[in-house]
Amino acid sequence: MLKDITLGQYYQTESVIHRLDPRVKLLGTILYFVSLFLFNNPVGYAIATIFLATVIIMSRVPFSFMIRGMRTIVILMLITVLINLFVTQGDVVLSFWKLKITKQGIILAVQLALRITLLIIGSSIMTLTTTPNHLTDGLEKGLRFLKVIKVPVHEIAMMMSISLRFIPILLEETDRIMKAQLARGADLESGNLFKRIKAMVPILVPLFISAFRRAGDLANAMEARCYHGGEGRTKMKPLKYKSRDAIAYLILAAYMVVSIYLGRLSLFKIM
């Protein structure tokens, strides 16, 4: 039952987007997020959507696969949209009972829905096309400048990649403990929420003990293999910018210029 959980859901295929340097993708995602909040006119949204659509097509990840990640967020989105729809003050278009729908409300709701959709799909592009390993490498190298202010960048990246490696192992372990407790007559599925949370205790305690033991073992194994922090460490797969990364940066820059320019245009402004 726990095997269905996939984290950092990477989609394996060959594409330009997959081959891009993770640093480009990281910065690209951040810039794309920023751009979404720069404008509030239809042309801006059209350009953001076209940009995203182009990237999706280039990534060769099936669109249906991306939508899958949206499902969980749909409820959250509906709530936000509905609240905006009914709460916003302005020219009333439709009213029944105590609820009023205003023109401004509709516009705001549509904008929000669009923004959230673009945000989620935009961020999933990065996780879908970058292996977790590559991502941590990218973070480590891309954020190296933070070392100046004493942020332990290497350590954080190492912790991330170790956690990613142990997620499936600990999931398997949880499954095993659950089965062991079920075999001893533990009741995990009946009762109210509070009861069920309480029933999780005999699962979490052994899980934590085992996780700590694993951590101790792993620390020993890492030390035995001469691990002593990021100092003097070389890379088996060092990140190197290629020409395609330069082109990607240029495209990003162009996209940002267009977004900022559009954001300042009042010509198409809706509100």
Partner: peptide
């Protein structure tokens, strides 16, 4: 060099 007992707890790479 040292190899330990539990194979899962000494592999670092993914």
């Amino acid at each position: 060099g040292m190899v330990f007992q539990n194979p899962d707890n000494q592999i670092i790479g993914q």
